[in-house]
Design a protein around this nucleic acid. Sequence first.
DNA 1: ATAGGTGATGTAAACGTTTACATTGCATAA
DNA 2: TTATGCAATGTAAACGTTTACATCACCTAT
Lengths: 338, 338
Amino acid sequence: MKNGIKEVAKKANVSTATVSRVLNSSEVVTEETKRRVLAVIDELNYMPHAIGRALVTRQTNLIGVILPDVHSEFFSELIRGIDKAARQHNYHIIVSSTHSDKREIESMLTVMQGGRVDGLIIMSPHIDTEEVIKHLSPLSRVVFVNSYLNGASFDSVTIDNYGGAYQMVEHLIEHGHKRIAILKGEERNYDAQERFRGYLDAVKDNGLDRIKNFELLGDFTEESGYDAMIGVLRMKSKPTAIFCSNDSMALGALRAMHEKDIIVPGEIALAGFDDVPSARYVLPSLTSVHVPIFEMGKEAVEHLFVSLEGKNGGEGKKMMLPTLVIKRESCGCTPVAT
Amino acid sequence: MKNGIKEVAKKANVSTATVSRVLNSSEVVTEETKRRVLAVIDELNYMPHAIGRALVTRQTNLIGVILPDVHSEFFSELIRGIDKAARQHNYHIIVSSTHSDKREIESMLTVMQGGRVDGLIIMSPHIDTEEVIKHLSPLSRVVFVNSYLNGASFDSVTIDNYGGAYQMVEHLIEHGHKRIAILKGEERNYDAQERFRGYLDAVKDNGLDRIKNFELLGDFTEESGYDAMIGVLRMKSKPTAIFCSNDSMALGALRAMHEKDIIVPGEIALAGFDDVPSARYVLPSLTSVHVPIFEMGKEAVEHLFVSLEGKNGGEGKKMMLPTLVIKRESCGCTPVAT
DNA sequence: ATAGGTGATGTAAACGTTTACATTGCATAA
DNA sequence: TTATGCAATGTAAACGTTTACATCACCTAT
């Protein structure tokens, strides 16, 4: 007992064309006919076949979302933002995580194209974004999110990594710190690069010396933050403040300091980036740079729709969302609760 | 300059059927022909049109995932597990969050069915699951995840909420506690119910009195944990231990105790549920019940594929994944680091 | 030499819609 | 009365594949 548009048409004594017109609320159908068709649709519990429809309209109402591995708050917030905005346009999203694996990215793009989605949102924080672009069919609509994209004419939405880092470091300087270390992220990570750039400029613009020893390398994980901090604590002349390129590393650093009985911020002040939920609940609470992830997802979708509706291809519109320094206990702004 | 299978066929001097056979690696094609076709495919950069294919094969290689609002670690872990398993079968996933809104669920189901996906994974922790089931087309393949599902003949994968709570409470009892409070989740939440049931049975089986005053109501948010704890601290005769139905509430409770200078676990011991990442980093670190979220997603997909491959409809196979008590500082197992 | 078999390829229908165009019936104007 | 126009509906092609079936060439056994 299959029931397609044909069955509905027959039962309602009209042609499939008319049923289709009712379905797409075309104006030209008589009230009477419309009522009859609707009744039959209801009776047969008819559901339009999305694939059949997509084949002819060349529209799937689907957006593909390609992400690298990403920590959980970021991931869920981004998806939430994207989904929310997509739903408002009556779209759904196909999500896939690439683990930043080249072969995986490639296969993903192949699958996603070929009519399966109307547009693509890609996050590619590593420098291999050029690889990605190479596999992009020229007619596909794409918006990049928080990606390394030098000059390529694609739409993109990013957060102000540079500015956030700059302001945070400047804030530490306002506290009187002159020896500020940075815990960097992976070299090839775009966010990490930008945040480092912000640190460097803030240090320079405020007349402090750049101390190469204080530029530590991490990889955005809690462990790497812990390890790096242990290293710092072995230094003869220690920094008085540490700016971590993300909160996970800051939490790791904090753990190391707890273990070694270092008082934060008394002996060493600490600041992170991302403002993850835990930042509020650790002791001392973690000063961090808030990042509008949800909004970024939302904006990405809006950009995509502009591109989808306009005839002309994406004109490479870039958008940068502001970040915000959240002052808590670990930088010394608020007395530490005990 | 469109290029479909026809263009490939023409250029390679074969019929579309042969191209299709090459594409689907059918055995019967000559080596020579295959090579020629493959060459043309490469030259034209031909990509099979997924929709055209789906229309005739009646297969989209897509799994729909419908989730309520869910906290971020849970969300991302679950998606990760589902995506990983799906990719192994060459499937992609369509994700949508319903915010537990009835109308939204309904429209979601309608959209998702009608040939758009091959199967559905649904998480519906609230009691209104029956509403969901009502809108399920009988031929759609579905696996429920962590859902309230009394007896309905659907496949489902859940975690052992009851057992985890039971063991955790029993563990607190082993520490010598006799006055153990519980911070419950919303009444209509399935997880919350089960965890409460575990608490109740553990208390009873160990010969302790049920103290109604100690059964506090929360809603799984950090704030509700904080508020409830403030209430507890005003009680004349306080509990000596508190079991929170999830970690967010436990973190809230912890914050309240910090503010009021209550020593944990010295004065009041604390335990949570979910084992979120922050549990490791708060002070004191939080004893909690670990939940295999990733695995749950993976298992859900595997169940779905069994159902997809088998001719017969889902036989209502249920699977329950074990939970694990993780002992840290907040229950008194480990000395608290300072 | 011929029938029958086999292996490779081609032909065309089918999947479930939408939509350009054709048709119909009817009202209105000349 | 007949042309004209218009509103409502129908007809059938199209979207891009897959696949059952037909065809064809060639080989083998009789």
